[in-house]
Every structure is written in C-alpha cells, then in structure tokens.
C-alpha cells in the first residue's frame, strides 16, 4: 500500500499521544480525564451489546427519520420554488430567516405542539434540515446551465420535460450538498434534544447521563460514538453522491 494511505493515522496517533501526555502530566483531574485505553474499552464494551450500542442506534433512527421527512418535503418544494424564480424571490427572505434561526430555539414551540415524545425531536431536526435542503435544491434548479435548458427546448422538449430531464439532474449535485449539510444539522439537533427534553435513550442522553454519574470513560466513549456517527453519515452521502452524480464537478 502507498505511504500516503497511512498519513491520516499520524493525526490520530498525535492526538492519542497528547492525551497520554495530559494524563501523565496530570493537567486535569484523573477522574475527569481517564487514560485513552479506558475510554476505548468503555466504547468497545458499550457498543458490543451494551447501553451505548442501543443509544447509538436510537440516535441513528431519529436522525434517519428526520432527514427522510426533510428530504421528502424539501426536495419537491425546492424544485417547485427553484423552477419559478419569481416565487422563490418572494419567499426567499422567509426561508433565509428561518434557516438562520437556531433550530434549538424552536424546541419549546414544538414541545407545546407535539409533546415530549420522539416526534418532537425528529420534527425539530427535520425542520432545520428541510430548510437547508430546500435552499440548496432551489439554488441548484435556478442555477441550471442556461445553454442546457435552451438545448432541450430547441430539441422540442416541453416545459415539463425540461424540468424532469434537465433541471432535476442539473440540481442533483447541489441537492447532495444540501443533504450532507442537512444530515449534519439533523444529527446536532437530535443529540441536543436527547440531552434535555425528557429523554431516556439516545447518544445525547448517554453523554449527559454518564457525565451526571461521573462515568467519564463512558462519557468519552459516547462522545466518540457521536463523532463517528457524524463522520460516517457524511461519508455515506459522499459515496452515494459519487456513484449517482458521477458528473459532479466535471
């Protein structure tokens, strides 16, 4: 294998070394910062049939529901808005405004409407993700290459065929940008929601509970599990994008 393949491991090794150094030099209380192997052991034990694994999958489930709901609503609406620039311009401010509003500020409102169940966590995350996806899809459609639209038109495509055969595909790369950003945001919102609104499971709950019980290796394990989940989701979308949007950037 080429040496470059192992380059990312240098950073990981550096981080672990730094961690050991901090433990050894007692920079922080040993109770607050256990050695890396303790956190690692807690992670392996938790993921292999322990609480952590269960919480991990609960978070995956909520994030998946949130992104699915967001995509099902935001992609068609984004296409509709993007294909009619006048309509988009008229709602742009509202979309931009709520896109800039921290979704966590919407928790109390959603709590009042949907109660403290799973539904609230999923819907707030879906709300945040939907606006991001909507914005990107609409821009993808609006920025479709003029020449390509004209080419389809001059070949005799109806407005509908131009939309389905050209605009939709033209907007796919931007749609994937929206999906990747949307899933990151949905994960953030789900984890925060799991920490604070009457939760009994999920990674957010795991981190919070471990901290409350002073089980520091468990807490670090949960944090890394959340990190791995975020990274993995992003990677998943990148791989799917590479496969289906092979022309992106070409």
């Amino acid at each position: 294998m080429r040496r470059e393949t192992f380059l990312p491991l240098v950073g990981v090794a550096g981080l672990v070394a730094l961690w050991y150094l901090a433990v050894w030099a007692r920079v922080v209380d040993p109770v607050l910062l256990p050695p890396p192997e303790d956190a690692f052991a807690a992670m392996v034990k938790g993921m292999a049939g322990g609480r952590l694994g269960y919480d991990f999958w609960r978070t995956v489930e909520r994030t998946a529901y949130a992104i699915a709901i967001a995509a099902v609503i935001a992609i068609p609406v984004g296409i509709a808005l993007g294909s009619n620039e006048r309509i988009y311009r008229s709602v742009e401010f509202v979309i931009d405004f709520f896109r800039s509003t921290p979704a966590s500020a919407m928790f109390p409102l959603f709590l009042v409407i949907f109660g403290v169940g799973d539904m609230t966590k999923i819907l707030v995350a879906a709300f945040g993700a939907a606006l991001v996806i909507l914005f990107n899809v609409a821009y993808g459609v609006m920025n479709a290459r003029k020449t390509r639209l004209l080419a389809a038109k001059v070949m005799g495509a109806t407005r509908f065929r131009v939309l389905t055969d050209v605009m939709l595909l033209e907007s796919l790369p931007q749609t994937f940008v929206g999906l990747r950003n949307g899933v990151s945001l949905a994960l953030v919102i789900v984890v925060v929601a799991e920490m604070f609104i009457g939760s009994t499971d999920g990674l957010g709950h795991r981190v919070f509970e471990a901290q409350q019980l002073f089980e520091m290796p468990d807490m670090y394990a949960a944090i890394f599990a959340a990190g791995a989940l975020g990274y993995g989701l992003n990677l998943l979308f990148l791989v799917v994008e590479k496969r289906f949007v092979h022309w992106s950037g070409k």
Binding site: R145, T147, M155, D165
Partner: peptide
C-alpha cells in the same frame, strides 16, 4: 442547433449515445 459551448450543451449525466438519441 449546435451551441458554441458544447460542454454546457450536452447532458453529462448520460452517455454520448443517449445524448444523440435524446431528440
């Protein structure tokens, strides 16, 4: 109609063959 900017006139998501048969 043949455009100057072929890169932006062809459909990159399908093969050259499919491009030709599209009309």
């Amino acid at each position: 109609y043949v455009f100057q900017n072929y890169r932006e006139a062809l459909f990159p998501w399908v093969s050259a063959w499919s491009n030709i048969e599209y009309p």
